[in-house]
Nucleic acid binder design. Structure first.
Lengths: 108, 108
DNA sequence: GCTATTGTTCGACGAAGAACGAACAAAGAC
DNA sequence: GTCTTTGTTCGTTCTTCGTCGAACAATAGC
């Protein structure tokens, strides 16, 4: 059965984590996981509006940056937030992601 | 005399700030400014190991992301951290940048 | 066995980004 | 005035990134 690699957070450079969170799609994933409050979610449960392959890519980036953890369960890929580890290595980071001002006019 | 545009932090999307900090060179700039503790620094005072043009580009990115402010003084460009504003809009962000774990301990 | 479901991997594409040298601009120093 | 200093702008090159469709793999259910 397939497993995913998950890096240790200790050696992880800040720049890589920032890079991982520098995309609206991936921020949305982390927010959804924060709202899930510890529960695992399957990839399909995120409503991202992108193709499957793209979705898979974003989860890969988040995993490589140590932000989420995934495991296979049946035909699904259950993903959870590495909340405590992130809080230890990058205190305040998740609050930052959670706490953005509510949706207002967005420009690009 | 030339001036630089500086965005308001209120409307600034988190992704843009993350993107701006997703580069080792720019993280180094912010760290240097944090150590300068409020003092303005000229571009040339940062030792980044890149060409002038590249340096100018990085400052531009940080300005556009609302992280630093610059003004011209004589032939130099004095840059400072928008510390309080950042702390209000993105609480904890600067601590995150400042607080990365020091260079890895060697173990025998 | 066969089919449906769920993700992954591959290859491609265009857009964005980092880097550089060269030319330029503005102010100081002389 | 000329020269120096400091940084910006332009044009180019190369790399990385986000996106997609198509093909594939693994499991579940029949």
């Amino acid at each position: 059965m397939k497993t995913y690699p998950h890096p240790q957070l200790d050696d992880l450079p800040l720049a890589e984590v920032m890079q991982a969170l520098a995309d609206p799609c991936r921020i949305a994933i982390v927010r959804t996981l924060l709202e899930a409050d510890g529960r695992e979610l399957a990839c399909g449960e995120f409503d991202l509006g992108v193709a499957k392959a793209t979705c898979s890519h974003h989860f890969d980036v988040l995993r490589s940056a140590g932000i989420v953890a995934s495991r296979v369960e049946g035909t699904r890929c259950m993903t959870s937030l590495r909340k405590d580890e992130i809080e230890t290595r990058f205190p305040g980071l998740l609050r930052l992601v959670a706490g953005e001002a509510p949706a207002r006019r967005r420009r690009r």
